[in-house]
Structures are given as structure tokens and as C-alpha cells.
Design a protein around this nucleic acid. Structure first.
Lengths: 132, 132
DNA sequence: GTTGACCTTCCATCAACCGGAAGCCTTAAC
DNA sequence: GTTAAGGCTTCCGGTTGATGGAAGGTCAAC
């Protein structure tokens, strides 16, 4: 099938699919006219990629997960390790954002937000604020 | 003062300071030998940028905040609007990550993580998992 | 005079694509 | 028969916010 159909079936834009081929994540057949020709296995692979990416795995992690997926000798511990690393990363990011949110919320709360120039947010950014 | 000192005083790497100049966020004087020559006002500006960036404002938002900072006629409402937009964005991002975390945590919990190939994480990515 | 630290500009690279240009292929309508 | 539309191809530049390196100029110390 052509790339447009593979795009529909996988939920990935054509450009992204070509990009994934570029970086070696799949290599579909070609028809006589030079068009990429996707099999159901290719589409399955693309959906695997789409799901992995949407869970926030990096492209390199996806590459690794794909190879584990096709490795019948794999140990589930290897897969779990990748997922756990991702989980730790997510927790770190959440903690960072929650901290930021606290600071910013505090500033926003204390800014009257009217036509006067006086503003604690700007004061904070300028270094003579109340936070710390 | 030279860029190295400005870097120390602002907490920004020299390369980043040059980059900020490139994109028009500041324009320090030059000495006869062509070296950048930073005033205390420049350093203040750099610290403003460092603080804004560390609160997660984009470079363009920083540009806007800087111009509001120097605008004595500014309305605090304008500053507040930028900060609130950033806050909404942070909340959106946190919600997204918390959702992801839930999914991933669920999968990790159900993976025994030993030497056997059987793995619900891979099953999920392959499309025959338990989530949904 | 030479070593070493610092400075300059310019360029390449990173992630993970996105969008556009120029051109070929196929099909259907007129 | 041709022409228009839509889909496909490759290639290239842009995005964000820097970061690191090469090649070379400057300056102070020894």
C-alpha cells in the first residue's frame, strides 16, 4: 500500500514515516514506479512506533524497544528497565514543573494585573522580588 | 568587563550570551580590540534573562518581558497575562505527564521483569495490550 | 619570545520532525 | 487528447535554544 494509506492506518503523518525510514526504523519495499510499498507488517511496526512515541519514549528508545519486540529471546527485565528509566524521567519532569508552577502561581497571585506599572512579577525577574 | 566576567556574574555560559546577542536580546559595547564590553546594566539584563528562562518563559516571551520591564508606562496586566499563559501551559504539560505516568506505571507494575520474554509492556506497544 | 588564558567569528550539530519546491505518476473528466 | 487534480518522489531549509569546535587574534606573565 502507498504511504498515504500507511499514514492513515498508523496515525503518523507521511513526513514522519519518511523520516523514520531515513533514520533506519523501517525499510518498506518499493514498487516499479519508485513508490514506497507498505505491508501490514510495516504498518504494525509504524503503530508500534506511534504508541511508543506517544508514551514519550525517545526515538532511540523506540529503536531499542522494537528490537526487543522482535527478539524472541528477550528478557522482560530489559523492557522493564527502559520503561522504568522513562518513568523516573517523567517523575523528575513533573517535579520540576510543579516547582515552577508554585513559583509562578505565587507571583501571578500577587500581581494586581491592572493598568498600573507596578508589578511583582517583573520585580522578581529583575532580581528584587520577594521569592527567595 | 569581558564576556567571561559577565558570564560569571549572570550565571549564563559565554556561548549563550553571544547567542542572546545574535538574536538581538542585548548589544554590549565593544572595546578597541573587538572584545565585547559589558556594563552593569548589561549584566542586569542577562540576569533578568537567566531568571525568566529558568521560570520556563520562551526566548520570545523573555524578549517581551524585557521590553515591558523597560517600559515605564507598562500595565501590570500585560505582564500578568504572559505569566498566566505560561501557567496554563505548565498545567497542561503537568496533566499530560501525569496521565502518561499513570499508563506507564500501570504497565511497569504488571511486568514481572525477569528472564522470561513475556512482557505486558511490549504487548501494549504492539497493540494487543491491556490498556484501553 | 613564548606559553596559556581569553577573546573573536563562523559553522556544524542536537531532536524530531514540518513545510515547501520541483518534478514524476496515475487517473478521471472533458 | 489533453489537462487538471492529487499523490508520490527527493532535497533542502527552518524550528528551539543552545552547545562545541576550528581557526585565529589579543594580552599578561615569565
Amino acid at each position: 500500500m502507498n504511504i498515504g494509506i500507511a499514514s492513515e492506518k498508523s496515525g503518523l503523518p507521511s513526513n514522519t514515516i519518511r523520516y523514520y525510514e531515513d533514520i533506519g526504523l523501517l525499510s518498506p519495499a518499493r514498487t516499479d514506479n519508485g513508490y514506497r510499498d507498505y505491508s501490514m507488517a510495516d504498518v504494525h511496526r509504524l503503530r508500534f512506533l506511534q504508541r511508543s512515541r506517544s508514551l514519550g519514549f525517545s526515538v532511540d528508545e523506540c529503536r531499542e524497544l522494537l528490537s526487543l519486540y522482535h527478539d524472541k529471546e528477550r528478557e522482560s527485565a530489559d523492557v522493564k528497565a527502559i520503561a522504568q528509566a522513562r518513568l523516573i524521567e517523567i517523575d523528575r519532569k513533573i517535579a520540576e514543573l510543579v516547582g515552577l508552577r508554585g513559583l509562578l502561581h505565587h507571583l501571578v497571585e500577587h500581581c494586581h494585573g491592572d493598568e498600573r506599572p507596578d508589578c511583582p512579577i517583573i520585580d522578581e525577574l529583575a532580581g528584587d522580588g520577594m521569592v527567595q
